[in-house]
């Protein structure tokens, strides 16, 4: 029998799934979470199974993570998305010790050890801002697609100070800045600097240890990654498909759990 392991990351905006066969990834899938997390979870499972040409009963273990993980009734284990990201990141880049995850509701900074175990973590506060939601707000104001936002900021030539990274006030500040005639690219670059500064405050509170990685949807934004690098003064690794590392980590945990169970039985 072929052993498949499924990792599901049910985020507040997007959900992702990774299917592994013994120790390698065979396929993955991502879609908006939508209102019914249970249905979305089943859909992702069915999609990856279809692509892999496998059946439900081939999955030895399913690990769910993320905001809606507890509603995935067919998951054998649930873990937090930080632990899942940690396993995924260490699998792809073994030298990483500090991870920044820009999620939709919260941003997280956490430290991990060489085995990908969670060492300590901090979440952005309710008022401090610095979450992916602010990115969405700005995109709306500038009428841009999230995907194109990052590149635009790299063209900035003029330094514009943006005073907040908070989702609530970023919108109104952006509106007034546009009214003042500030260029889109400069506005975006300024906004990324403000957001990066807030993430940096979080990271400094936690204490940084090299190497550094950025994951989550926000990591696909080149302008934001650059603002972070400028602020930190060192390179930040962005793994391929940074929005998928938690799902990957979940699949890895599924495989690891089974290996341990076998070891115990022997």
């Amino acid at each position: 029998m072929t052993a498949y392991y499924l990792g599901l990351d049910m985020g507040s905006a997007f959900s992702k799934g990774v299917l592994m066969k013994t120790d390698r990834v065979v396929t993955s899938y991502a879609c908006p979470t939508g209102g019914e997390i249970k249905v979305t979870a089943e859909r992702i499972r069915d999609e990856v199974l279809l692509k892999a040409g496998a059946a439900k009963q081939d999955i030895l273990k399913t690990v769910a993570t993320g905001y809606g993980s507890k509603t995935v009734f067919f998951a054998n284990v649930t873990v937090t998305d930080m632990s899942a990201h940690a396993k995924g990141v260490i699998h792809l880049c073994p030298s990483i010790r500090t991870v920044v995850d820009i999620g939709d509701l919260y941003s997280k900074v956490f430290r991990i050890d060489s085995q990908g175990n969670l060492q300590s973590f901090l979440l952005s506060g309710k008022c401090a801002g610095g979450s992916g939601r602010a990115l969405t707000m700005i995109a709306k104001v500038l009428q841009l697609k999230i995907e194109e936002m990052g590149e635009i900021a790299l063209r900035s030539t003029k330094k514009v100070e943006f005073s907040t990274g908070c989702a609530v006030f970023a919108e109104s500040e952006a509106v007034s800045r546009i009214a003042e005639g500030v260029a889109k690219e400069d506005l975006l670059a300024g906004f990324y600097r403000a957001l990066a500064a807030q993430l940096n405050a979080l990271a400094e509170r936690l204490g940084l240890e090299p190497d550094y990685a950025m994951v989550g949807g926000g990591a696909r934004n080149a302008g934001l990654v650059k603002a972070m690098e400028d602020l930190y003064g060192f390179e930040i690794v962005v793994p391929p498909d940074p929005h998928m590392t938690a799902a990957l980590g979940a699949a890895l945990i599924a495989a690891e759990t089974v290996r341990q169970e076998i070891k115990v039985r022997q």
């Binding site: 506060g125 100070e161 943006f162 005073s163 990274g165 500064a197 807030q198 940096n200 405050a201 509170r205």
Partner: peptide
Amino acid sequence: EPITKGDT
């Protein structure tokens, strides 16, 4: 000026 250090 955005708060960058104070929140730590």
